[in-house]
Every structure is written in C-alpha cells, then in structure tokens.
Deep mutational scan, measured.
Amino acid sequence: KGCNCRRSGCLKNYCECYEAQIMCSSICKCIGCKNY
C-alpha cells in the first residue's frame, strides 16, 4: 500500500513507507518526499 504524507517529507514513522524502510517510488507518493 502506498503512502501519501504531506508535511513530514515521509521521514516520520506514521508514513507507511518510512516505517517499512521503503524508499520513495511510484508506489510511495509522498509530497516532497525526502526518504531516499
């Protein structure tokens, strides 16, 4: 399942991608994603 966080840059544990240690991709559609 994808993540669509808006404010944290996908760097907080409530973002599913970050919590699962998945990098930003087409699945993880965080706005302004900084989780490289």
Rank of each mutant, 00 (worst) to 15 (best):
K1E: 08
K1V: 00
C3W: 01
C3Y: 10
C3F: 02
C3G: 07
N4S: 09
N4D: 15
C5V: 00
C5P: 06
R6H: 00
R6M: 00
R7W: 06
R7E: 15
R7H: 10
S8Y: 02
G9A: 05
C10Q: 07
C10V: 05
C10H: 01
C10Y: 03
L11T: 10
L11D: 03
K12P: 10
K12C: 01
K12W: 01
K12F: 11
K12G: 10
N13Y: 02
N13W: 00
N13P: 06
N13H: 00
N13D: 09
N13M: 02
Y14D: 14
Y14P: 14
Y14C: 14
C15N: 01
C15R: 04
E16M: 07
E16C: 01
E16H: 03
E16I: 06
E16A: 06
C17Q: 07
C17G: 07
Y18L: 04
Y18H: 11
Y18E: 13
Y18P: 10
E19K: 09
E19N: 04
E19H: 08
A20K: 05
A20M: 05
A20R: 11
A20D: 01
A20Y: 04
A20G: 13
Q21W: 02
Q21K: 10
I22M: 03
I22A: 12
I22V: 12
M23N: 03
C24V: 03
C24A: 08
C24D: 09
S25D: 05
S25H: 06
S25R: 05
S25A: 10
S25P: 02
S25M: 05
S26G: 13
S26F: 01
S26P: 01
S26T: 09
I27G: 15
I27C: 00
C28Q: 02
C28K: 04
K29W: 08
K29R: 12
K29C: 11
K29S: 12
I31P: 12
I31W: 09
G32D: 03
G32L: 00
G32S: 09
G32C: 01
C33L: 07
C33E: 13
C33H: 09
K34G: 15
K34R: 13
K34N: 13
K34E: 14
K34M: 12
N35Q: 13
N35K: 03
N35I: 13
Y36M: 15
